[in-house]
Design a protein around this nucleic acid. Sequence first.
RNA 1: GGAGAGAUGGCUGAGUGGCCGAAAGCGAUCGCCUGCUAAGCGAUUGUACGCCCCUAAAGGUGUACCGCGGGUUCGAAUCCCGCUCUCUCCGCCA
Length: 435
Amino acid sequence: MLDIKYIRQNIDLLTQKLQERGQPMDMEPFLTREEKRRLILKQVEDLRSQKNAVSREIGDRKKRGEDAATLMEEMAQVSAAIDRLETALKEVEEELAAIVMTIPNLPHESVVAGRDAQDNPVVRTWGEKPTFDFTPRPHWDLGEELEILDFPRGAKITGARFTLYRGMGARLERALINFMLDLHTAEHGYLEILPPFIVNRESMTATGQLPKFAADLFCLASTDYFLIPTAEVPVTNIHRGEILAEDQLTINYAAYSACFRSEAGSYGKDTRGLIRQHQFNKVELVKFARPEDSYDELEKLTTHAEEVLRRLNLHYRVVSLCTADLGFSAAKTYDLEVWLPAQGVYREISSCSNFGDFQARRAAIRFRRTKGGKVEFVHTLNGSGLAVGRTLVAILENYQQSDGSVLIPEVLRPYFGRGEVVAIRKPLPAIAERN
RNA sequence: GGAGAGAUGGCUGAGUGGCCGAAAGCGAUCGCCUGCUAAGCGAUUGUACGCCCCUAAAGGUGUACCGCGGGUUCGAAUCCCGCUCUCUCCGCCA
């Protein structure tokens, strides 16, 4: 959410920025309601002021044993007038909020104006595409053959875009979660969080998923609770409505969670494999920073996410999202895209964003300056560190061998028991049956 | 799921219809004093929104906020209703 006063005073700049985002908006409805709100508010407050003064007078007179009947009658009418104006005020405030809540964040000045994802500049690349002396196969084939990913049974148990992990597949997913959390907590200084995976409407609104993107969420029937689409939601809401001390900042949290996305409108995209699921695992990094620090923190956050890929020795590139590709709440975003050799594409595996004060204003997350004692909004940031399912995909495809087995990256081997396990192989028939 | 108790400022805690944005204490900040330390003295100590002033900041002023939402009343932290959360007991449960 943007500041209403800021919108009013910078209406031309805002119109231009929305244009650049490819989401032009007519600001006239905002302006008329904003003005109407102030007009009515003034009237209501003047009447209330009058009411307060006269009510005090009535009290005084009664105490002195004087008659106050005329004044009381007068005030009854003033109260009625206040009631009418309050109704009108509430109405216009709701309309105004409805408009403001659907205005996206303004892109940071360093974000390039572009038309679509094609215009996202590549900031850097790391590593090299692995070479194969055979044709690399897609992870869905490898996963089924190794009997670690079971797509038909996932569909039977629940439906399309749900997958059953088995044996070494489940183990690899778990190893990745632990590896990522260990790295971020022990070496990057994040505090580990295990949040609720179900949140209320207020939390969803604070981080920007609601009211605009309800179609992407799973809502629990007969409740006002939602399955989280990312740990960003519960973790950012940890400090909703709080005023933090300046010396607490920057706060760094790392959280594993399952993520649930309904994503209506994704039909036909990525129908095979693990890339686009209704349920997936993710380790999320969240920061609360002072405004002057937030863009430095974004760089740090991004390198923390990158470090996971580096240690797994997975080739990737970093792109900076252009204005048109930027998410609703973000002021600036870096996407990490990992190389998937079977498909010959770079695939998004992490998205690291600075939201500026956009979420903080919605969520009322503030801090008090030690010097000056002023209250200001914090800046919130978050990034995937990383999407676990997609990391598993990248490992299967990049570490596959000609015999159909998949080597386990060095850094993950300690998570597979005593270190004897170095590869995932097709199970022997007898073992397969026992499983 | 059933029964009961509770929710007040950074914290503790008083306040059952007007003199209450809210006593007192603690904490914090600034200043004074004491040759250091401790103690003492004084002042300040919420947030949001509107208006005035204005380059801005500061300032002035008004309104709202005592868990949340309604109601009664000229007037509500205080009375009534609904909800949420916390605590205790019972039931159920991993």
